[in-house]
Design a protein around this nucleic acid. Structure first.
Lengths: 275, 275
DNA sequence: TAACAGATTCACTCAGTTAATCACACAAGG
DNA sequence: CCTTGTGTGATTAACTGAGTGAATCTGTTA
């Protein structure tokens, strides 16, 4: 049913998004309603937005304070939403400034006792596709000599990733990428210079894991940097979430395992029978 | 007391910002605490963050799902915040994608009944410095022939404004700007080509408004575009908020008033005795 | 002017969420 | 075996927001 969505559904989703962006339900509903009218009174908004008319005023007041709505102080009052461009720009700027402010503060605070031991042998878990992607780029950017990457789906191949890879090859880093499909292989080969991409036949990685146990989670990325840092993420089909483990240290168990794996994969790739 | 802030205050503010960015109090506190440590256990976090230890686990779980924290599944569990860069980047991207998605949806929805009458004689009010600035730029960008602007403080002179003005002069628009200080005048004259900037002696605009009534609000901007559109904003000293009125239509009362005002100001500016 | 209708504000109830505390199961070490 | 500390879950209290109706204000009409 993707692609076919009732206007009502879309509206509901927009309300949800607005709420995630910090608005209350009434505020979100009123704004969406106002976005559909050149201008409107409390009554009109109340009808369209399906909110108690008596609360429209509160909601609009908040929206006005946030710079999303303008008010005509007549009787009855008229309201109208600022243009879509202005609204998104306003929201964006508010958020940017908050993040910047926060960033500055945290930089100020950070200095506390820091007695660091060797981080070796540790394995950390992290979630959220966004932050895993960010970590991927960061690690590629920090590579000293070699990057080995296996991409499990085309969702991994973002502009940011391409950029990271190009930046790495320019630094003289050896970049070797394995993919699951010819499509992805071609795309990477053409967009990244001096890269070595091959289509992997690692069926045992992507096909149903034998029979029992794992409810067929799929490997999304494997990243091995300088043979001592590993990022491995998988896609949980039930929740559609991406989870990753991250390890560092040449003799970290996970790193060793993956290194062996990659080594065997690399050898196989030279093998004619390997495709 | 600005500039001198206890680490504790800063921490509290950071927590507040994080909450505005969508985190709960515990989540925010834990993240700030973790930002001060290379890594930490639930107990350490609980001590620093001043949150019940038994609730740290929940909070961290949420943070991990949002991509802000990574977890080492040992005993005891160890937690650590992703780097500041990664964190802000993650937050930024989440927000960006939401705004983009929202933008797309609202564009889809907007078409509802639109029977527009003449918008003349209406005066609209809007708040939020950010959105007033956005509106200012938008109006300058839409100018057909003439822009008259009075800036009441240097807070108005942003890069975005400079850009709008330059873009306007390049289109052949006549741009005339009045300022309150020689500083601002020089800055504008140097950064915008083909602009006419003068220092206004409009004391009656900026000085205490006579005696009673207004608790000395100050005029922040006056923008008159093509002699038929006006944006006038003032700064409320008690709340430090900027409020604006916006009117369109050649015979709109507010527009007429301002046009007369500007006209007299412009004439005076030619007058040697006017400074 | 009096009465009226709609517009607007305010105060209140109810429900869901979150903060805060507690009780308990579990593991490691003495 | 007891002690210490970790981790999970249940419970209560405080708060926030949704929803509703009464009170106030406005302009209009009889």
């Amino acid at each position: 049913m993707v692609g076919t969505m009732s206007s009502d559904d879309t509206q509901q989703q927009a309300v949800g998004l607005l709420q995630q962006l910090g608005l209350k339900e009434y505020e979100a509903k009123c704004f969406v309603a106002l976005s559909r009218l050149p201008k409107g009174t409390a009554k009109q908004i109340s009808d369209i937005a399906d909110t108690p008319r008596t609360r429209v005023y509160d909601a609009i007041r908040v929206l006005e304070a946030k710079g999303l709505v303008e008010i005509q102080h007549s009787s009855p009052q008229q309201f109208r939403a600022v243009s879509l461009d202005e609204a998104t720009e306003t929201l964006r700027q508010q958020y940017e400034s908050r993040v910047d402010e926060l960033s500055a503060m945290l930089e100020d605070i950070e200095p506390v006792e820091l007695e660091e031991e060797t981080t070796a042998h540790e394995v950390w878990g992290l979630s959220s596709a966004g932050s895993i992607a960010a970590r991927t780029s960061k690690l590629i950017g920090e590579a000293a000599g070699e990057v080995v990457l296996v991409v499990g789906s085309d969702g991994v191949v973002t502009d940011a990733l391409i950029e990271s890879l190009n930046e790495a090859t320019e630094r003289g880093i050896s970049v070797l990428v394995g993919t699951v499909s010819e499509d992805i292989r071609e795309q990477l080969q053409s967009r990244v210079t001096d890269i070595n991409v091959f289509v992997s036949e690692l069926k045992w990685l992507h096909e149903s894991e034998n029979s029992e146990s794992d409810d067929n989670v799929t490997i999304e990325r494997i990243l091995l940097v300088d043979r001592d840092t590993i990022l491995l993420s998988s896609l949980d089909p039930s929740t559609a979430e991406e989870h990753a483990v991250f390890g560092r240290g040449f003799d970290n168990g996970l790193v060793v395992l993956t290194r062996r794996l990659m080594a065997s994969g690399l050898l196989s790739s030279q093998d004619p029978g390997w495709n």
